[in-house]
């Protein structure tokens, strides 16, 4: 797990005057699942696009599996698989034809193509759908087929951009299981997600990017430890908190999940008093008060100042 398979140095991207990615540097170790977290518009997708050759960096570079993204991008493309945010296989082709086409484009030896596609379709539980046109698949199956297509040339590194966004719980769970299996097979997984819990469950290490800058790179456990000193107050109301009020509350860093509010606060006593006042003002009943060990979500909130719930809502709206 020591060797760095991705080494990013001073990678920067300007779109005109807009600085989308600001001189970021980090490394990814071979065989790990590396999470790239950040609020919407933080620069996650732009970073992936630079690493896989869809966008040229304005400054800086990255070495992937020994090749420089500025000079040897075709060599890099042979070695990496990419699952974009949108499942973009060919609607007019069947699942089998799509994977076979990818195998041909990536120059998988002719004798191995059929067997490899069959193996992947069985692994991804798509064998029975092999003759179905891609456009007729459900969202979850499309996602699975897109991941399978990205693996047909047996890449050593797999980039996944928001792989579980918009998927139902079962499909998302299945996809997470697949990512773990890939890690067991020695594939390095580079994953962007706005689901903090997903990153917590899956990733060996995570990087947090905010406004184009990396603010932390560490294991989820170390990130949680970093905010250990800050108590988290969890309050459950009998009905959802009016969203505008939560924004106006001057209680500290807040995460709202329906009826549940989590507050990172240095002063739980005063915060609790303020919450009780707020509940009275809105005729809400407090059903539960609890103090929690900080989660990765809490660490993320502390680092970015952005509510993951708000991020999820924005992401879903944007789709």
């Amino acid at each position: 797990m020591g060797e760095r398979v991705i080494e990013v140095s001073g990678l920067t991207k300007y779109y005109g005057e807009l600085l989308a990615v600001d001189h970021i540097s980090f490394g990814v170790r071979r065989g790990e699942i590396f999470g790239f977290l950040g609020p919407n518009g933080a620069g996650k997708t732009t970073t992936i696009r630079m690493l896989v050759g869809l966008t040229r960096p304005s400054e800086g570079t990255a070495i992937i599996d020994g090749y420089d993204i500025r000079e040897e991008i075709v060599e890099i493309k042979r070695r990496v698989g990419v699952v974009p945010e949108t499942s973009n296989l060919y609607d007019e082709l069947t699942v089998w034809e799509n994977l076979l086409y990818m195998a041909r484009l990536y120059r998988v030896p002719r004798a191995e193509r059929g067997e490899r596609v069959r193996e992947l379709l069985e692994t991804f539980d798509l064998w029975k759908r092999r003759d179905t046109k891609f456009r007729r698949l459900s969202k979850g199956l499309k996602r699975r087929a897109t991941v399978a297509a990205a693996l047909v040339h047996r890449p050593s590194i797999l980039f996944l951009d928001e792989p579980t966004t918009g998927l139902d719980v079962v499909s998302a769970g299945a996809l997470r299981g697949l990512m773990r299996r890939l890690r067991e097979m020695g594939v390095t997984v580079f994953l962007t997600t706005h689901y903090i819990e997903e990153a917590d469950q899956l990733c060996d290490r995570v990087a947090v990017i905010v406004k184009g800058k990396i603010v932390a790179v560490d294991t989820p456990e170390n990130m949680k430890s970093a905010v250990q000193g800050t108590p988290v107050l969890e309050v459950v109301f009998d009905s959802p908190l009016p969203s505008l009020e939560t924004e106006k509350m001057d209680l500290g860093t807040i995460v709202v999940e329906g009826n549940r509010v989590k507050i990172l606060t240095e002063d739980p006593s005063s915060t609790l008093e303020a919450v009780i006042k707020l509940a009275r003002r809105h005729g809400l009943r407090i059903e539960l008060v609890n103090t929690l060990r900080p989660s990765l979500e809490d660490a993320f909130v502390k680092l970015t100042g952005v509510s993951p719930e708000l991020m999820r809502v924005e992401k879903e709206r944007g789709r």
């Binding site: 050759g53 990419v82 484009l105």
Partner: peptide, 14 residues
């Protein structure tokens, strides 16, 4: 429009 050209640009083709 549908991102399929981008899929092609991800392949090891110039």
């Amino acid at each position: 429009r549908v991102g399929a050209l981008e899929r092609l640009m991800l392949a090891p083709l110039s």
